[in-house]
Design a protein around this nucleic acid. Structure first.
Length: 496
RNA sequence: GCCCCCAUCGUCUAGAGGCCUAGGACGCGGCCCUCUCAAGGCCGAAACCGGGGUUCGAACCCCCGUGGGGGCACCA
């Protein structure tokens, strides 16, 4: 990136629900733009809707953002030059701006009741007309309106949309979007509670906070011209507008929903960032994955650690078309990042998953087995199933699985017993030469090494699929290996 | 119903008029490697929504269809 001006970019979630990967993607693009330009990434909480407010939500956003490594430069918790960063604490600012708008003839008081508005809407629907405010209070004289408001009558403030002409709004990715002003409603700017709605609050804050690039979801496209009109009414200079594509369900049908990709075991949903963490995904993998939904670098690069992203990201290469999420690609990236970790790093990531599964493992123990599982797991939690046998006192193999390939139970039992003998003769120091000994035994028994290994694998690990057998046996230790093989032989002998 | 946006393999995408017999990735199939499973290597199937223009030439530009998505709240 050459000579870009420092960008001031904001991520402005509404604390009404969980932190979705769609929002995470927006936040990520914000972050990248700020970092690569040497600008600021700002966190602003848009909590003007007191009815939908969820006290848990803000915390979840903080947590998830931190986990992803998207550190903000200004925000409600850390302050900044344009404090406060929580809209509910900025009402005085909005109040003054509203007065300015009314005085300039760009907004008016409206006394219509919600009931009347519903009636109007229903009538319009019946007549198959566009649904919009019918303008009753727009025709009130400013003096009369002010008197009624001062007299205690309940009111809202509406934007006085020009009734003629057109408005052109320019989106960086889509170019100019021109609409007839007639199609733009006289939107409510301030609710009867005195709280502003998004259309006023977000525009005001973006301007006051000197935001240079507004990145937001394409669900704002329909009201985009309204926002331009509001900027013009105030005489403010517009930021660069970028409307990101929506994320679609994996099927490509419909907007990504909360029902998508639910983990049946934990009930975790792969659409929420904090759930992704619990499901054993690495933040770098999640970042790399969501970056590529709607952005690309060239015709062959896909692996982008954060440092590369900051360097290579560019808003011009963002795509305007909707993208269906592909969870198997997340698995792929997660595998890639797991394999890119050092033994120590991966062990540290793994520890909490063993703990959560109530397996008493410490870091040193995990480090020993990491090399055996590193290239075999796609999510961190898989390590528990794959390597749990290292820590358990006993394994409980499925008896039928103990039988060697193309072998009888008796022959398998015999093979297990012979293996037991062979291993027993080995001293701890010779234990690492196990493989030769066992291969020789297989020859002697006139079976394939794979057949013998299969029996021992299930005997020692309790699993048909496991890390490499010999290495696993060495870690498990001679004593336990012998006990487990002996037990397996017993089981096999009961099978006829 | 009204308004807006979008349109290349199943999915994410490269492609900004000739470099395209359309490239990469995930997934899928096959082979190799191999103690299972992975990882890795190699190979393969798989797309320019349709119709009109413009042009010597169109996946790329324009128009019309069609399809998909989004929005029509005192929510954001």
């Amino acid at each position: 990136m050459t000579e870009v001006k420092p960008a001031r970019v904001r991520f402005a979630p509404s604390p009404t629900g969980r932190f979705h990967i769609g929002s995470a993607r927006t936040a990520l693009y914000d972050f990248l733009l700020a970092r690569q330009s040497g600008g600021q990434f700002i966190l602003r909480i848009e909590d003007t809707d007191r009815n939908r407010f969820d006290p848990q939500a803000e915390k979840e956003y903080y947590e998830a953002l931190r986990w992803l490594g998207l550190k903000w430069d200004e925000g409600p918790d850390i302050g900044g030059p344009y404090s406060p960063y929580r809209q509910s604490e900025r009402t005085e600012i909005y109040r003054k701006l509203t007065e300015e708008l009314i005085a300039g003839g760009h907004a008016y008081y409206c006394f219509c009741t919600p009931e009347r508005l519903t009636q109007v809407r229903q009538l319009q629907q019946k007549r198959k007309e566009p649904t919009r405010y019918d303008g009753l209070c727009r025709r009130l004289s400013p003096e009369e309106a002010r008197d009624r408001a001062l007299g205690g009558e309940s009111y809202v403030i509406r934007f006085k949309t020009p009734q003629e002409g057109q408005t052109t709004a320019v989106d960086l990715l889509r170019g100019p979007i021109t609409v007839d002003n007639q199609t733009i409603d006289d939107y409510i700017l301030v609710k009867s509670s005195g709280m502003p709605v998004y259309h006023l609050a977000a525009m005001a804050d973006d301007h006051m906070m000197k935001i240079t690039h507004v990145l937001r979801g394409s669900e704002w496209l329909p009201t985009f011209p309204l926002h331009v009109l509001i900027y013009e009414a105030f005489g403010w200079q517009q930021p660069i507008w970028i409307h990101l594509s929506v994320l679609l369900n994996p099927s490509g049908k419909g907007k990504l929903s909360k029902r998508s990709a639910v983990d049946p075991k934990s009930g975790a949903k792969a659409v929420f960032v904090n759930d992704l963490r619990k499901m054993g995904y690495l933040p770098q993998a999640v970042i790399n994955w969501i970056t590529l939904m709607g952005w690309s670098y060239d015709d062959h690069s896909e692996f982008f650690p954060m440092g590369d992203l900051i360097e290579k990201f560019s808003i011009e290469k963002l795509s305007p078309s909707p993208a269906a999420v592909n969870f198997s690609k997340l698995d792929h990236f997660n595998g890639l990042y797991i394999r890119s970790l050092s033994t120590d790093e991966l062990a540290e990531q793994l520890l909490p998953f063993f703990t959560a599964a109530e397996i008493d493992a410490d870091l040193t123990e995990i480090k020993v087995l990491v090399p055996l599982i590193q290239e075999r797991i796609r999510t961190l939690d898989e390590a528990v199933n794959m390597a749990g046998f290292f820590f358990q006192a006993d394994v409980h193999p499925e008896p039928s699985e103990l039988i060697g390939k193309k072998m009888s139970a008796q022959d398998s039992a015999c093979a297990a017993e012979k293996a037991h003998e062979v291993i027993q003769t080995l001293s701890e120091s010779e234990f690492e030469q196990l493989e030769h000994a066992l291969r020789d035994l297989a020859d002697e028994l006139e079976i394939k090494a794979g057949q013998l290994f299969g029996i021992l694998r299930v005997a020692v690990t309790g699993q048909k699929v496991s890390p490499p057998l010999i290495e696993s046996m060495v870690i498990v230790g001679k004593k336990t290996v012998l006990a487990r093989i002996a037990r397996a032989a017993e089981i096999l002998n009961t099978l006829e």
